[in-house]
Design a protein around this nucleic acid. Structure first.
Lengths: 191, 191, 191, 191
DNA sequence: CATGAATGAGGATTCATTCAT
DNA sequence: GATGAATGAATCCTCATTCAT
């Protein structure tokens, strides 16, 4: 039982590292050195390597966390908004989150470009979340039924990529509106 | 007159380097070493540096070339197809080209993410090309007039990003269809 | 307390590097590669760069060390010898030290040729040391009062430059005697 | 006979290269590339290598030229000034020339530090020139006879080294005065 | 468990020199 | 003779990862 506090402290270190890495990636203009992440977390590099096998390991961990955060909002939106509004809100959420974080954009980016099982899972999670909000809107007849969540995900993944230049967010919102128009096109009961 | 052959050979080398770099970027899993580009082009690194000031210089050159290739097809399509079909064909072209080249995806990617004047120009060129095909379709009443070329470019830039996984191209085509549906939404004289 | 041995070992490495660099510069026929310094110190290049930001950093460090060594002898000479003898001994010291080291010659050389604050400090330190021994001799009336330490430093800096050819040291000693004759010229109470 | 103009042109090129190199070395903050010298001379690098075997060859040639220029002034001074004044003027000349040219300082510097026969010759030439002006002053009894030209040369070589910082020339002149005082010390018939 | 010093392969860039035209 | 493009060895510096304390 003497190791409880040790465990607790180790866990705290792990979380510090995750947070530090997330923040570092968000602010990143270029690549981040492991040493920088450790420094931000207030630990040594050795501690970093105790918690994460390799550089890629923490990238994956950060991505996973971000994606989970994002997907978690889908049920909440569905339970508080009408289906179409929930869909719209969710898509806009993707942009807002991206807007706040170069890191999230990178995350989505990598989710789409890698073969790693981690990213396949993340992709599945995102697609499921989109599927959930879309299903509700389809059922309500507000959007058409012949578009797959994968298609919408593909479209969104792209949008969130171009993060960072002036006017980016406005353009991204315009794309979302365009997509939604496409989704309502020939819907059973469009708004 | 004595320098003609020298110049010609040097120019050939420059082109070899560009081609080698393009192919290398296309195949790239990771970053390409200058030495690798030189080797593929059959020259020494010194020759590389005679033609391109720095690593970034050749990346820019390749991007510029790719974008020019792409934009060049817009007028051709417009002169051989009805406006809407030309638009559709042009958007699909973006995907096809990207499909053949991770490099083009990177190119579009970078076009969108960098402040470099080179990329600003490239972006302008792409937007102009899209504007041209859209204008024709708007005039014909087949698509609506209230969507800017920038919006469409933004959407496309994203799509071309996710290049590389199984099923990618099919999903990308689906996104294009969705976008086109959005563009026809409430058009004056939709097909 | 756990980090004492680490620190101690790191410090030993730093000193090995300084020593290795000093010896390498001393023996230098041409420029020294960082790798060579590291090899002589028995460490990897990475270790070099952990201790010295850049190539110039170690050059400065070596110079500083040499200059400090040299200046440190002035007070000792003053406390054990009559003023004029101390002056003479100090000037000869400059030569002796230089004779043992092309590196010291380079050091003085660079002290004089660079704008770097490090070298300005070193220059000041040397001038101060010379001023101290001269002041004593002036007070004793053995040398005249109208020559500044800067002038003597300038003269010495030059002498120590020509290091390395056969007969060098003898010629340098001859120059020192000549200078001392100049300094005694019209002195209040010359020897 | 048809090759006369060729020869003349080739000679002109050689001189352009020498002049270009001298100017480049004078202005040099760092090392000069062969290409830069060729560019300044308005020729290609190939032409450079037709005239100078290697990089060192032109350095030697420039040094030789500079030293010849300098030594040539000794007889002129001797024939127009009293011996002591000629000596003083010659030493000041060394400084003036150096002041106008970082290159000359480098030249003297190298003259003293290298084993190359070229530099041995140059050294001999300089020592001879100094010997000539000194001999006249010794004969006139204005300076003492027990100082060798080598000693004076050694002293001067050093002075000319510290070229370039603010106040340099004034300090150098002060050193010359100090040396001259040394030389007049106990002279048979000092001024 | 934590630390951070050490490692060293890796990759970009420079420049003296050669040689085909 | 002149040209300048090509060469590639040389060298600097970075950073992910290991391991002794």
């Amino acid at each position: 039982m003497a190791d409880k506090p040790l465990r607790a402290h180790a866990l705290r270190n792990r979380n510090s590292l995750l947070t530090a890495a997330r923040e570092a990636f968000d602010a990143a203009e270029s690549d981040i050195r492991i040493e920088e992440i450790a420094r931000r977390a207030g630990v040594g590099v050795g501690t970093f390597y105790r918690h994460f096998e390799t550089r890629e390991a923490i990238v994956e961990a950060v991505y996973r966390q971000r994606v989970e955060d994002l997907c978690g909002t889908a049920p909440r939106l569905l339970s508080t908004l009408p289906p179409y509004d929930a869909l719209q809100a969710f898509l806009q959420q993707l942009i807002t989150h991206s807007a706040a974080s170069q890191g999230m954009a990178m995350a989505l980016q990598t989710v789409m470009n890698t073969g790693s099982p981690v990213f396949a899972q993340a992709r599945a999670a995102m697609t499921d979340a989109i599927a959930a909000v879309m299903a509700a809107a389809v059922e309500a007849g507000t959007i058409r039924a012949d578009i797959t969540p994968e298609t919408v995900f593909q479209a969104m993944g792209g949008i969130c990529t171009s993060h960072g230049q002036p006017g980016w967010e406005a353009r991204a919102q315009a794309v979302v509106r365009l997509l939604l128009d496409g989704l309502r096109h020939n819907a059973a009961d469009p708004r």
